[in-house]
Design a binder for these strands. Structure first.
Lengths: 243, 243
DNA sequence: CCAAAAGTGTTTTGGCTACACCCATGA
DNA sequence: TCATGGGTGTAGCCAAAACACTTTTGG
């Protein structure tokens, strides 16, 4: 009774991970596979999600789903939109799939996205056949999950311009070029290295360490950390009207 | 069957209206009143909202709710957040109220806000005892509706800085000072009139009419319109990283 | 010594800020 | 003619943009 599922309300999670080595912003999805005796009925990918339990907050559902998928807790998360149109689970494969699951075709989903490091997730421990795909090269996705990912990505693009959430995708110690590469990946733009570098180094909350990269085959770069404390202290809303 | 309600999912609408005369950003709420033979049990205000119908999109639910309340259609609307924590309808008055209504205490609500002109709404035609309150001086509100309004307002404050949604709150023909007053109301700040005026007048999509205010008791001001066409044509995303 | 990526300065430009007085109008 | 709100100009400052070469390192 305590863990009774609410059958028509779920939380779906768009898990963004950044791979510093390949400079790729990825999304974590799981396999959806079903076959009959004669043929493969469903073979694609979906976001992870789960029904909300009767006595659980929406945030807690999202946290639970992420933990179940990756083992991770305390990652950055944001509820960004609810999806609940009557036709959202009604293409052919979705209907076949739903027959085998206990949920309503009219299911509402509250969508969250998470930001973390691709490397923090050990896919081998996972039962879901989870897999990373570059956000710009997604596989065939079930339900309306392509749309959900697209909207999450749009929100991320906007939000990373005005809040320092980008550092959630990077290791604690990073180089200035790591940050630039990540912005370029997310936004799909080229940034001038000299201007970007100057801009970042001048921020008091981007702190140079007494440390350089190790194990790189070329000139090792200066490492920096982001200080949330300093950021929070000096943060003040600016009301620049930019219409 | 067609119009079967989904009992645990609703849409709530935060209706923002701006009153040019009083320079007040208002929220439209309806009376919630219940009495027993001996006493008043519930006497406060709530947002308008309604269950989602089985065959209806979320956007359509919001549109329907607004129309039912104000008679208006085609107003700017935005889905901004879902609320569904288990305790959101569980204070004493809410429980009394719910007994008389057919909905679940674990109800999820997808919250929208609308932007329109206070003057466009004729409250006399309304059966709900609807009333405008300044967003900074709200009455006692039932359920978690205070929180919903606060979050809608925060979203509006952010969004009006980067998109020309402010004009949805103004009459088609407005003065520069109207726009300034509105920004000052929404953001709670003072703006330099000369700088603001110059900035607006230089925008190609703020078009001066061959027309001035009439019926004002002082020097009549120049009227302008906002051209969405021009705005859309010249709009280009700028990727200014401002962290 | 070579390949590769790290790191560095200057100039121009445009937008934001600060600031105080005159003007046009209707009553 | 007066009270009220409408409307106007300039100078300083700062942040962004444009732009190409030198340095450091490991192999």
């Amino acid at each position: 009774m305590k863990n009774e599922k609410i059958l028509n309300v779920s939380v779906d999670c768009v898990v963004f991970g950044y791979d510093v080595a390949t400079k790729s912003l990825n999304v974590l999805v799981i396999k959806r596979f079903l076959e009959s005796e004669k043929e493969v009925l469903v073979d694609d990918y979906v976001l992870t999600g789960y029904h909300v339990y009767q006595h659980e907050t929406l945030d807690d559902t999202a946290t639970r789903v992420l933990k179940e998928l990756t083992g991770l807790t305390n990652q950055y998360k944001k509820q960004f939109k609810a999806f609940g149109n009557p036709d959202r689970l009604t293409n052919e494969k979705d209907l076949i799939w739903i027959k085998n699951e206990e949920f309503n075709t009219r299911t509402f989903t509250i969508a969250y996205y998470f930001l973390l490091k691709t490397d923090d997730v050990d896919l081998n421990k996972n039962e879901h056949q989870a897999k990373w795909f570059p956000v710009n090269n997604l596989p065939e996705l079930g339900f309306d999950h392509k749309k959900i990912i697209t909207e999450a990505y749009e929100d991320l693009k906007t939000k990373c311009l005005s809040e320092p959430i980008i550092f959630k995708l990077l290791p604690d110690k990073f180089t200035i070029n790591d940050v630039q590469d990540l912005y370029e990946s997310i936004l799909g733009i080229k940034i001038d290295n000299r201007n970007f570098r100057r801009k970042l180094i001048n921020k008091k909350y981007i702190i140079a360490l007494d440390e350089k990269q190790v194990g790189v085959s070329k000139k090792p770069a200066q490492l920096y950390i982001f200080s949330k404390d300093v950021y929070d202290k000096m943060f003040q809303k600016n009301y620049l009207i930019n219409i």
